[in-house]
């Protein structure tokens, strides 16, 4: 489903050039969950951003099903994120001025794929029923991340990308959130690529790949 081949990315500033990815390659199959680990600064988040179309690679290929992501224009990359990807970040990135309910329906709303039944199920499984009228600032970190996962899965994306989704959470809360995420991913059958520092959490996924010096091992 996701096929990344020979991806390179270099950041340039006035003083220096930093090569983050030197030909990274990676595959994630439908329904498969993969942990992407590596040291700080190894390029894990960069790789995830490139897959999500948030940034553009210097060379290489990213194919999501039949779509070549690297060749897409900004408009098409936006459509890809909207319709076919779910994104979960370490900082949750909820919209602070919307309630939990509005945050949950936001992406499916703009994708025009709002499904009331699925939405209800998500709310129930994520345990958000009592929190729907609250704003993000009124939630704990674990609650916020559950909302973020709910928002990402509301469109039933074929691929869920998560960047350190438990980085801001304590161990118990992290386990609880990951259990919920795994359960929902299994139900939707989507692929799952998660960037994490935690070997313990990585071990709970189907497969682990390691990024070092800009290459996947």
């Amino acid at each position: 489903m996701l096929n990344v081949q020979n991806l390179t990315k270099t950041y340039r500033s006035a003083q220096e050039r930093i090569t983050v990815l030197r030909g990274a390659s990676l595959r994630v199959e439908a329904g498969e969950s993969v942990a992407l680990t590596g040291e700080s600064g190894s390029g894990k988040s960069t790789l995830l951003h490139l897959i999500a179309g948030l940034d553009q690679a210097d060379s290489g290929s990213i194919r999501l099903d039949n779509t070549e992501v690297t060749g897409l224009a900004d408009q098409d990359r936006a459509a890809l994120r909207r319709d076919r990807l779910g994104l979960v970040f370490q900082q949750f990135n909820l919209i602070p001025s919307l309630t939990v309910a509005d945050n949950l329906t936001f992406q499916s709303g703009i994708a025009g794929r709002h499904d009331h039944r699925w939405q209800g199920e998500l709310v129930e499984r994520l345990g958000l029923g009592d929190l729907l009228k609250r704003y993000p600032e009124q939630l704990s970190g674990g609650q916020q991340q559950r909302v973020a996962i709910g928002r990402a899965l509301a469109v039933r994306p074929p691929l869920l990308l998560a960047d350190e989704p438990t980085g801001n959470l304590d161990e118990a809360t992290a386990d609880e959130v990951m259990d919920l995420a795994r359960d929902l991913i299994k139900r939707t059958g989507c692929g799952f690529l998660m960037v994490t520092h935690s070997i313990r959490l990585a071990a709970t996924l189907d497969r682990r790949v390691h990024l070092s010096a800009g290459l996947i091992s």
């Binding site: 999500a52 948030l54 900004d74 408009q75 936006a78 459509a79 890809l80 994120r81 909207r82 319709d83 990807l85 994104l87 970040f89 990135n93 909820l94 919209i95 936001f106 992406q107 703009i110 994708a111 928002r151």
Partner: peptide, 11 residues
């Protein structure tokens, strides 16, 4: 940024 990440095009 979140809107863009959720798939809203810059246009």
């Amino acid at each position: 940024r979140t809107l863009r990440a959720c798939g809203v095009s810059s246009r």
